[in-house]
Design a protein around this nucleic acid. Structure first.
Lengths: 113, 113
DNA sequence: TCCATATTCAACCATACAGTTGACCATGCT
DNA sequence: AGCATGGTCAACTGTATGGTTGAATATGGA
């Protein structure tokens, strides 16, 4: 059914998981490195990552003893499409969004991490 | 914080609530009428509606003894914009991005069409 | 081989969630 | 007033969720 959609939205409902996604937006990361900025056990982050992977929002691939996590935007897109069919609202204020990006990138350009 | 986003995504994670939203897409409805197509008690639907209202996804207004439920697409828009940030795949500071969203939505909620 | 690193597993705890039922308030009808 | 209708509240049940800790597994390196 729409179990996929359930999983995606449930995954996004947790702020820690959204923060993880935003980390992965910048780059692929190992589990330990994902966990580093959070005040929470590694096991907890590992669970969050499993939930994100279950929802298809990230993929995980083991390389040696390191498990790399990679953002998978397609699952997000599914949810996005669902919402588009919903709100009759036009593809949101891309104006404001691009203004934001411009400012953001100018301010933050040199280095991210 | 981003409690609003938490609430929206959590609300959307339940298939019954998504179904309710799609009912309301067609028209405003009374609580009893919303409940009718579901194989579930009225009290349960009432709770679902409270959750949707709490997330700002619907509004409820009492007229006589009937409580009318109305879709509020702006809250959906918040989530949609948030997800579009990922589709863009830009190396953005998501903290700033979420701040941007709150400001953006507060400012522009009234009109978008 | 022995040890450190990376990650998960298992058991557990507290809280939240979805659902039920029955009682309860509020409003409208006659 | 009396009664049916619309909706919520309260108490309860079962299950899911987010977190913990400590043990376990897997890999890499000296």
């Amino acid at each position: 059914m729409d179990t996929q959609l359930d999983a995606v939205f449930a995954a996004l409902a947790d702020p820690t998981r959204r923060a993880i996604l935003s980390l992965l937006l910048e780059d692929d990361m190992a589990v330990t490195d994902v966990a580093e900025p959070f005040e929470m056990s590694l096991a907890a982050i590992s669970k969050h990552l499993a939930i994100l992977a279950g929802a298809g929002l990230i993929s995980q691939q083991k390389h040696g003893r390191v498990k790399w996590c990679k953002l998978e935007p397609d699952a997000l897109r599914a949810a996005s499409v669902w919402m588009q069919g919903f709100g009759q609202f036009e593809p949101v204020n891309l104006d404001a969004f691009e203004r934001f990006l411009t400012v953001e990138l100018r301010d933050e350009a040199p280095d991210h991490g």
